[in-house]
Design a protein around this nucleic acid. Structure first.
Lengths: 152, 152
DNA sequence: TTGCATTCCATAGCTTGCTATGTAAAACTC
DNA sequence: GAGTTTTACATAGCAAGCTATGGAATGCAA
């Protein structure tokens, strides 16, 4: 109806803003460990299961393969991972954590918890859980809408 | 307690993922109008008030000045704005919308509404409003925590 | 008025996301 | 088994975010 559309009520703008603030908060906390935010999800995935291929990492972290390739190069440069070719399938590379990365696992997780806690300060656990659930639902909506074309 | 910390329950990861999906959804919808997501908030601010200075735009859109400078260069290149020096204070530049930008205002707002609607499909208006309110609260928490140091 | 401080903008260099392409290995078809 | 298709990774180029730094204009103070 009215064509007023302020940034304040725009989901996209607000979520983008929140994402940047969370990334900055994480950045300051993990900088002492030689890790940057764009490497964080990859490290979490490898903490869960070491030796994933690049493609498996892409699928779990949900970023494009080209982005992953460059990120892995930086992580290798920074001494966090080693990328070794898979002898069984020479197209693949397998990504292994270094001792340096394993040594800071607990600190990194503590840093992430700290950022999340400072963002959700004043919220009840139920509210926080509900926020996460709704976020997952929005993600699911957008992912579903992207694949099958647009209109039913 | 337990040191399990999955991406699925990590606020930062989820919000980042959602922000990327929203940006992609917006990108496909506004590409026909020669606009990209990083220009969107600036255009909204200028639709509200034309002729803002670069600094005023930074304050409203909440991005750093250096980022704004490069974005404005692209927007000028793309014919969306004109940047003219302020005669009263020659340090400042004032940013004015072009006719081309004004011509697509309604289409851009419709595109943003479309993305937001497809993200919040299946949610009641109350749920959507609550989600926005919580998002604003998290933003406020992080902004408040950033300025005054860390611990009280 | 002279000099210092502040404010505004531009630039450089980095990260992290994207799309589009190219190449090499594996898998499948005939 | 030769040819085609598919898969996995690398590379190039762009956008958009950040910090750090520098220069020019303005403002303030002595």
């Amino acid at each position: 109806m009215t064509d007023v559309f302020s940034r304040e009520e725009s989901l996209g703008y607000q979520v983008n803003h929140l994402a940047r603030l969370l990334a900055q908060g994480l950045a300051t906390r993990i900088a002492p460990y030689g890790v940057v935010p764009g490497q964080f999800a990859q490290l979490l995935a490898l903490f869960e299961q070491d030796g994933l291929t690049q493609r498996e990492l892409c699928d779990r972290v949900q970023i494009e393969q080209a982005t992953m390739a460059k990120t892995l190069q930086r992580m290798q440069r920074d001494g966090l991972v080693n990328c070794v070719p898979d002898p069984d399938d020479r197209r693949r590379i397998r990504v292994h954590l270094t001792d340096q990365a394993r040594a800071v696992e607990h600190d990194l997780i503590a840093a992430a918890r700290s950022v999340n806690a400072s963002a959700t300060a004043g919220l009840t656990d139920a509210e926080t859980a509900n926020y996460l659930k709704l976020t997952a639902r929005l993600i699911h909506n957008l992912e579903a809408g992207a694949e099958g074309g647009d209109r039913p």
